[in-house]
Design a protein around this nucleic acid. Structure first.
Lengths: 208, 208, 208, 208
DNA sequence: TATGAATGAGCATTCATTCAT
DNA sequence: CATGAATGAATGCTCATTCAT
């Protein structure tokens, strides 16, 4: 059935809301919250400045909404659903590649720049924790516990290990960004990088 | 000998400069660069707003100066100088404790909040890279190469491993901050946390 | 036909722009550029301070715009178009009266006060030269050349004479302003003043 | 007799006062009153900023003092003392040359830039009128009256003529400054310029 | 609902003036 | 008297938010 006028209108409205949100993400990421202007967001979204306020109460509200949409992609969490079927190194390789693709695709420092706003604000922190951190950590902890129980891993403090490993990915990214062009990692092929990390996590640094 | 009038004056001047720098660090950390106001920095420093401009050219210059003083503490780099005498686990334990003390003592998220400004600004990035990241990474890489060569470590891509390990510490901190009160790490004693990380880095997750 | 909504809006906008320009002229004239404040200009224009910046990029831009609108009135240049038909003394009388009316009507010292800003600033100087000085001088020179060629004037260095005569009007005004109330010219009727100047320019000071 | 300590001190003091005044004239001329800073004046004078306030009550007071020193040079007024002995054209030539030297030597626009400050301020206007304008005008009027009475000039409204001629010199200068490099007067030799003006004033523009 | 001009509070910065040494 | 650091009022300008159309 063809959409009614009512429906078409609603879908237009939804679209406009999304446009604004996308624009806000882009601008906040590039400049940070304080240095972003509503003027620029409006331009980026292709709407008038006033229109933003028909959808969002304030610039701050827009930021909160942006963070709220930062849900972990289903595809990522899905990896863990079928995790039992894969060997750990294979899984880890998949996860690391997935994360690096994610960072790559959505703009190198988008995530990290938003992070600074999040760290500064208790409300945002809570939202982000609930929507991103907790789901991932829970999934990972469960995975490690199972593996540990089966004897495929040595006994682990899963709380610590998950955060250490999650942190490793995040921190590696940060350091790379800080080093910029001069980072020696720039010349390491992705495959080689991932392989080394997998080995580090699996075996540590000690000799066989 | 008693300080001359000249000397006393100079020391007063130095003190005032330091006061302003300290105040700036505090306020920038709490609010971020853009949302920090010179009024607040002046109040925090206990001087008039105009006085700031007798010492620093601009608010931006103040930020640069703050970042410049973020040199890695000598004590930290010193650890690596005498590194040969310690077993790796003992060294690692020392390093981790040192880092956590550092974070603890200098204000929980001070470092991380400044980092967001640093990431956004090429000039600051360069300064921070040169003064903090590079020295640490160089020291660590040399250490790992030596160990590897002696056969105490398996063959490593030291560039990757150092950044992964450095990143782990940084990222762990980030995640903890994001989780806040609700983090399970809150209830893990420092000693236990460090021990687990040491083991993870040494042996990885695989069973013996 | 009645003006469309669009047109009405545009005319309102034009009006506001003009209001601001008028206010700026007034305030700049009274206080000079540096001592004029945007606050005062806004008040004078009856708009908010921010509104100024919807129309002009900066206070400086406002000054430039003010100077740009100082085009010589058409009526003045028109005098020279039909100059051939008048005897020189009659023409001169017309010109002098026109200039004195102009000064009188547009605020006594407006022109002169702006001139100080103009003299100080190369860009403004160029604008004013191109829009006011050059057109007048060109017209006058052409006029004198023609008259000279016809033998109605003695042979003249027209470049010098035009500027000397233009300068006479300007300088007379300046001196009068400096002398203020105490000037003996205050008690000379306009007609008499103009007549004397005409005779001076025509015959000089020598006896017949 | 050698100067006493007392005297030497006083002369030093006088010198310093003069230094400050000279510096102020220079800076005010170059930038205008409002845009000149006490810092710059102090630097120019080679004293500390605070020292200025030991000699002058305020920046404004400094401006007043600067204007007060703008007395007409004796040499100029002296010209008129012995005026009787010279033919008018010779005298006029002397005066014009003197004025143009004066302008040339003391910096092209020094006088004119100060004039804008003077025009804006009643107190300064009065001072300048009394010290510069009035003496010149009085002298000139007396001269013209005498000449007129003797029949060497036609009957003149001396008040008007003196101001018209004084204004001519001033205005010519102004126009030249406004035209800058592009002025045709740039290529007219001084002698020729003066000669033309003398003839204009003496005979006017009419043919013999 | 969409628009965009108007608003005015808020900020970084300047600079004349003061005053302790 | 000389100094120059400290002061803080004043200013140009920005930008989130409102609201008449």
């Amino acid at each position: 059935m063809a959409p009614t006028r009512q429906e078409r209108k609603e879908s237009l409205t939804k679209m406009r809301e999304q446009q604004i949100l996308d624009a806000a993400l882009k601008v906040f990421s590039a400049k940070g919250f304080a240095e972003a202007t509503t003027t620029e967001i409006a331009q980026e979204a292709g709407v008038a400045e006033g229109t933003i306020y028909n959808y969002y109460q304030s610039k701050r509200d827009l930021l909160v909404s942006v963070v709220k949409t930062f849900v972990i992609t289903e595809s990522f969490l899905g990896i863990f659903e079928n995790a039992g079927e894969l060997e750990f190194p294979a899984l880890l390789t998949t996860v690391l590649n997935n994360r690096m693709d994610f960072i790559g695709e959505s703009g190198k420092n988008r995530l990290l720049l938003l992070m600074s706003e999040i760290l500064r604000d208790p409300e945002l922190k809570m939202i982000y924790d609930r929507q991103v951190i907790k789901p991932i950590m829970t999934r990972m902890e469960k995975y490690f516990e199972t593996k540990s129980a089966k004897g495929e891993f040595r006994p682990l403090q899963t709380g610590v290990v998950t955060r250490a490993l999650g942190g490793m990915v995040l921190g590696l990214l940060l350091i790379t960004l800080l080093e910029g062009e001069s980072s020696p990692l720039q010349s390491v092929p992705r495959q080689s990088l991932v392989a080394e990390m997998v080995q580090l996590i699996t075996e540590g640094v000690q000799p066989h």
